[in-house]
Amino acid sequence: MKNLFFGASKNILLILYLLFLAFPLLWVLSLSFKSSMEIYSGIPNLIPLAPTTQNYYSVFFDQNILKSMSNSFIVGIISSIGVVLISIPASYSLVRYKTYLNKGILGWILVSQIFPVILIMVPLYMILRNLGLTDSLYGLSIVYIVWTLPFVLWMMQGYVKAIPIELEEAALIDGASRRQVIFKVIMPLLLPGIAASALFAFITAWNEFFFALVLMKSQDLITLPVDLARFTGMEGQARTGPLAAASIIATIPSLIIFSIIQKWFTSGLVSGAVKE
């Protein structure tokens, strides 16, 4: 009897949690299919009485969200490829060599988490301007590469550690060069880590707001979060529906990618050093 009570109350508790967590998305999803008349009708239905796709139409054709979406997509792709390419040899070298450089990099990984972005923002802006990389999708991508690097390096070196050193020694004895060892032996074994890192970098770029807000000025180069933030700035009743639709569109890629990487992500963070 007591167990039954505990079981039931646990379930109720969990349902309350889930309602709290899911409700905003459900509500906004519902808003996105309502006409503005229904939105302001004063009847809070979760299921729209007269569903319409007008808001989505207006987001794509009147607001031209496609431009900022494709900018976000380009930046996400460049930065995820970039960060993976440079972190494969780097994470390998961090595991296989033990020098003062390791301490330097580790120190940087920790320090980079503590300092607020505002401190580096202005100097970063000036450096990028000198390089001609402000208001440029490449410039923004490079910033994101550096920005995601601490986490990617941390995660990747966990994967490298799990690779038995005997495999490499065998390859070296067979006459393989160091380059061949990295690309032919290590890389294939790192694929899960590479995939997780790439997706993580993509989603970080897709979600990021502050750098994009400061570094990008031209209307046709801004990324999706900045575009949507500007969109909210413009008050007015007619905007609620399109804004809801735009929020849903921006959330979908993040949700899909997150559900894929979630497992690797947390185990990568927590283990890091485990797995012999």
Binding site: L21, V28, W206, L255
Partner: peptide, 29 residues
């Protein structure tokens, strides 16, 4: 529990969402 599988998907919602969108959604509410 029966709901754990579903829960693991649902708890991703706020986490995965761009912080800007979190703000926009709640602003609408």
């Amino acid at each position: 529990m029966r709901l754990t599988k579903l829960s693991r998907v649902i708890i991703l919602i706020p986490w995965a969402m761009p912080p800007i969108i979190r703000g926009i959604m709640w602003k609408l509410m």
